[in-house]
Design a protein around this nucleic acid. Structure first.
Lengths: 143, 143
DNA sequence: AACAATCCCCGCAGGTCAACCGGGGATTGC
DNA sequence: GCAATCCCCGGTTGACCTGCGGGGATTGTT
C-alpha cells in the first residue's frame, strides 16, 4: 500500500469536504466516519492534524464541523501527506560512508523526486474531479 | 526513507558483486558486511533471499561466497526489490466501497506505476556506473 | 441560564513489523 | 579430519500504526 490508512482517511475526508466547499457548509467527524466506514475516534485525530496544518478550519458547538480552509484547487496532496505523516528526518548524522551507499542515495532521491512531483501536481480538486468522473462512468454503465 | 534497510543492504551488496563480476570471483558475507558496516548475520538473510530469487549464486565451503547469477546489466532493480520486500498483496477482498476511496486508488496506482517505471529502467550495472562516476568525481575534487 | 452538540487534548493499549541475534546443521577445499 | 563457509529456522526487541476512552472547552438553541 503506497499510502497509510491515516493518509487515506485524511484525503478521503478532504474529497468529501471539497464537494461542499462552494456552499460554505460543514461536515462533522461522525458524519464522514460513518459514510466512509472508518473509526470516528481515529478520524478525529487526522482532522485535528489537518486543522493544525491550516488545511482545515473547524467550527465548534452544535451545528459545528469542518470545512476546507482554502479552495480545493489550492491544496496540493503533498502538503496533506506531509502534514499527516510528518516530515522525513533529513539524513541525520551518521551518513553511511561508502561509495555504494552514495550511489544508492542518488537513486532514492530520484524516486522521491518523482513521487513529490506527482503529489505536488495533484490537488484535492483533481481527486474530486476524478471521483465525479468515476461516479458518472458508473452511472452510464448502470444504464 | 524510500527503501528499507533490508533493501539497501541487498542492493549495496549487489553493487559490490557487480564490480567483480568480470573476474568470476566471489565475495563472502562477512567481507561485504564489514566493509559496508552492516550486521553480517542480518545481511546473510538478504543474500539467501537473493539466491532463492536466482539473482545470486552461492558457493559453499572454504573459499566460498557469493557472485551474481547473471551480468549486472540484466538485473533490474525492480526484481531485486520485489525479491527482498515480497510481493504486494493484490487488494485482498474488502475493497472500500466508496467513490472517494476509488478516486484515491487511482492516484495510488499512478504513484506505484511511476516508481515501478524507474525501478524497471535501472539495473545493478547502472548503479555500479554511478558509483564509479561518483568515486572519480571525488578523486578529481581531491586533487 | 441551562443544556446538549460538537470539537479539543492527551494518554494508553494491542498488534504488527522491521531489524537483528543465535544455535546448530550441511558442504567442501585443503 | 578439520575448518571455513553457506544454510535454515526461530526468538527478541523496539518502534510505529491503528484505534479507544476520558474528560474539558466552546457555542448555538431554548
Amino acid at each position: 500500500m503506497a499510502l497509510s490508512a491515516k493518509t487515506q482517511y485524511g484525503i478521503v475526508s478532504l474529497i468529501e469536504l471539497a464537494a461542499i466547499y462552494e456552499q460554505g457548509s460543514v461536515l462533522q467527524v461522525a458524519e464522514i466516519a460513518q459514510r466512509q466506514g472508518i473509526p470516528d475516534r481515529y478520524l478525529e485525530q487526522m482532522l485535528t492534524t489537518l486543522r493544525r496544518a491550516q488545511i482545515l478550519r473547524s467550527i465548534r458547538g452544535p451545528r459545528g464541523g469542518y470545512q476546507l480552509a482554502r479552495p480545493p484547487a489550492e491544496i496540493p496532496l503533498l502538503q496533506v501527506i506531509t502534514a499527516l505523516e510528518g516530515e522525513v528526518a533529513p539524513r541525520s548524522g551518521s551518513e553511511r560512508a561508502s561509495a555504494e551507499f552514495d550511489a544508492l542515495s542518488a537513486l532514492e532521491e530520484r524516486l522521491e523526486a518523482s513521487r513529490r512531483s506527482i503529489l505536488e501536481g495533484t490537488s484535492v480538486q483533481d481527486l474530486l474531479d476524478q471521483r465525479n468522473q468515476l461516479a458518472s462512468a458508473q452511472a452510464m454503465y448502470f444504464i
